[in-house]
Design a protein around this nucleic acid. Structure first.
Lengths: 235, 235
DNA sequence: CGCCGACTTGATTAAATTCAATGTCGGTGG
DNA sequence: CCACCGACATTGAATTTAATCAAGTCGGCG
């Protein structure tokens, strides 16, 4: 939770450059003014569903889940985020309350860029707006795909796809097998849009079929092609 | 299918202005160069899933559904579109094949803006990029919401919500009651992410409960508040 | 040591899909 | 004009899937 000076935070500048490719050095400097860095503990909320957005967040290091809580208490994970990504731009752009919450999955370091700076930049800098547009288009693509999957695939297919998704976002650990993120079975269920029990049963089935392996929360992919064909991905 | 000269098509210019608010007159003129207008028959495809995007489409008049076909043959409607909206920008921005198809639901007049012009504009004109960004943010919001609904709501709630969605997009006819679009039961099912049979049964139930009324394909909303509370909308 | 949170497993239940059959409407051609 | 065709709508019954409910287990931590 400590707030560093923007001068200390060289890492952030590099993030800006990699996200908004082609930004000039002085543009990065201006972006860096007025922003603040924070460290969030595991489980801590970065922003909360139903509250107004005050700026955007850029993840320096760590992992975050974006999820939406229904009145029923059910949680649906909308997106998993890794370091280097932008967070919270959607609500800001449509000028609405956050429709989902962001929670740190581990110790996470995040830069905050206040809204007035954010808007000044996308209004004045077509490159940045274009970069953001591409991010939005990519988010939209992934969300549309999830939408279609949810309505057309079985729980088994969706869990398989969730594992592939996690591998895509977080990659493997050094062993090139273990998916590099620790989640509860409930979280995996909430990515796949099913219940904890179903996710447990499906994971157990995948283990028996030697597609994956696990003991505890780390999941190893033993048969990647098998997982892909199970997930039944179309494009 | 006739292609009009861009000079004839005054309507298009007004569309540009309303979509990309604040465009100057000469910018609209440049946008108008090189574009073409077409009229599509009912059922005709505007673009096809799996093909490369060549530009964006702007609907002058008519109604369109955007849907994605799975290998299984199942169709999921991703979005319903009315006149005045932009179409097909997503695939263009992420530089991918179309992940869904667009089909005219009735006789529909559409302007086409080729990709080189589109990109020149969003690169040079921050206002336009910003406007598009807001459209993308709005699309993303709607898609995220649908995603959550699909995983958490019953078929009845989703059908109720689909009707509200159609009313929001297309409005009522003169009687201020009849939803201003003609769809098959299958289409409604594909919006709600269920089967034709289920959509028929649920619609029959809503009719019996005097929430809606219909004979044939036109649907009348008799109890709007009832429909809203059925749909169980959170935000 | 005992407790808490997460995990696991089995049994039951509910919801919705699937399958099958029939009905209706609009258009088309003889 | 009428018979027929095809597309869509409707209804009932069987089946499947996954949610829900109910216990019991495991592992870490105060």
């Amino acid at each position: 939770m400590n707030t560093e000076s923007h001068i200390d935070c060289k890492q952030c500048k590099n993030r800006y450059k990699s996200i908004f490719c082609d930004l000039k050095e002085e543009e990065v400097d201006v972006l860096s003014l007025g922003k603040a860095c924070k460290t969030y503990k595991k489980g801590e909320e970065i922003f909360t569903q139903g509250t107004p957005p005050k700026g955007i967040f850029i993840i320096n290091a760590g992992k975050v889940k974006i999820s939406r809580l229904a009145d029923s208490g059910n949680e649906q994970i909308v997106k998993m985020v890794n370091s280097g990504e932008i967070l919270g731009y959607r609500a800001l752009l449509s000028n609405e309350m956050y429709s989902s919450s962001a929670v740190a999955l581990e110790v996470t370091s995040i830069c905050f860029l206040p809204r007035h700076l954010f808007f000044r930049f996308i209004e004045q800098n077509a490159t940045l707006a274009g970069a953001l547009l591409k991010i939005a288009a990519s988010d939209l693509k992934h969300t549309e795909r999830k939408l279609v999957d949810l309505s057309q695939k079985t729980a088994r297919e969706r869990i398989a796809e969730a594992l592939l998704y996690l591998k895509e976002i977080y990659g493997y650990e050094q062993d090139q097998t273990t998916i590099n993120v620790i989640l509860t079975r409930g979280d995996i269920a909430n990515i796949a849009g099913t219940t904890r029990e179903t996710s447990i049963r499906v994971l157990a089935g995948l283990k028996k079929d030697k597609i994956i392996d696990f003991s505890g929360k780390s999941i190893k992919v033993k048969d990647f092609p098998g997982l892909v064909s199970l997930a039944n991905i179309s494009d």
